[in-house]
Design a protein around this nucleic acid. Sequence first.
DNA 1: CCATACCGCGAACACCGTTCGCGGTTATGG
DNA 2: CCATAACCGCGAACGGTGTTCGCGGTATGG
Lengths: 251, 251
Amino acid sequence: MADEEDRATEAVVVWERPERGARGPAPERSREQLTAAAIGLADAGGLAAVSVRQVARELGTGPASLYRYVAGRDDLVDLMVDAATGEVDLDVGLTGDPVVDLLGLAARTQEVHLRHPWLLEVAPEALRTGPRGLDHLEYALRALEPVTELTGPGKLEAVAVLNALVAMLSAVELRARRSPTGRQAAQSAYLDAVVARGGHPLLAGALADGAVREPAAAGHPGTEVPPRAAAPFERVVRRVLVGLLAPEPAA
Amino acid sequence: MADEEDRATEAVVVWERPERGARGPAPERSREQLTAAAIGLADAGGLAAVSVRQVARELGTGPASLYRYVAGRDDLVDLMVDAATGEVDLDVGLTGDPVVDLLGLAARTQEVHLRHPWLLEVAPEALRTGPRGLDHLEYALRALEPVTELTGPGKLEAVAVLNALVAMLSAVELRARRSPTGRQAAQSAYLDAVVARGGHPLLAGALADGAVREPAAAGHPGTEVPPRAAAPFERVVRRVLVGLLAPEPAA
DNA sequence: CCATACCGCGAACACCGTTCGCGGTTATGG
DNA sequence: CCATAACCGCGAACGGTGTTCGCGGTATGG
């Protein structure tokens, strides 16, 4: 009574559906091509620019054709995310020090985030890991092997925390790089107004301290900020890792 | 030369636009009503269920009418997020121990996340903080006041890390609670298949260890998991906080 | 060799966010 | 005090979206 109702469960994940059937003519395109086109659009115009119609146009065909390769737009996003994850180099040897090894993985992962900003736009809710994602995870677990203080689920938690951390820090870095996009400028102005209004003294103080928000002169690019951002990333990631992997937090 | 071109900058944030003009008849509805209706829809059907048309229908009017209260759908989402943030109780006294105080704030914030799962669906990219969000931030900074090892920007970073952490742990908790929604079931089956295929031994081991994924019997709910999830949350948050606020990570 | 399963894709459906412009309402400046 | 300018509600429409249906053509398994 379980074998026959799997036709309802046949709404299966992309990675399990075969790339092509065995009967008909050969497909004129491949999932890889769809993915590449979609990633190109997203790199240029954000995740919102990735529509079934646009991707189809990019490939010189109609929207309906894509549904031979993919069950829907969500599958397309899954393919994109996994392809981007595959850009992280996992052929780097391990030193045996979990903090060092995970820090390196985090740095290489951040590079991908900076190269594909749309990764931050995909809702974490809908994240369904593909083969490359699982390789990424396995690598992290390999780096965590020397750690004996954590159980299996504990290690998975730690990796999840690390990934969320990398995403967040990448978002910060991206906001610092590109010139404000109007929406951000408005938000910035609102922040100034509220701070000036008093009532949030500590926030005001924290903002006054550092370079987090520079004067933001006219608005056009021009002053490119070079590689200056490596330091805070390493510092924060290291501290979090040390906290996560510490034997016991005292009491 | 700055005062006159602000007409281009008049694409301003929601919080700065007045609720109503001074000339015409009184509006029949309020932003608060729009927000409440939108949150109701989102609580029931996710963020995707929040469309201008649906909200309008909920209020018994046409889509165009909403644009008197809001510049677009994004403003609506901003209002929702800020309203939800306002549900976090900030009237809790501080003990003076930053770890304890921030842990409490994190726990109360997670409650809101669990009550409004759609918060995790809003892309972090588009997050523009409103007044309640700034209050939340100010409270966290107040809890961090005794910490002298961190500068202003450093504290802001720490709070950002904490918020990302709470979001991630809430996502985990939510996934564990509700019965898999088909998409998640497919993902789960795929995971089993890959693990059975070998090639990810550490992942297999980690999954075999704990209760992260129970056998997943038939599929229907039934076995409600009670409040059992407080422990890992506190443990992880505490460790991360200790790492973030530690004087110096050794060398 | 032919039935079967697949491929490409034009056409259509339902929904989405957003804009325009109209008639009615209200406060204000002269 | 009243005319005018600013505002409110909203029907209608535009261009975009994801997705489905069903057709003619093609390669392959039995």
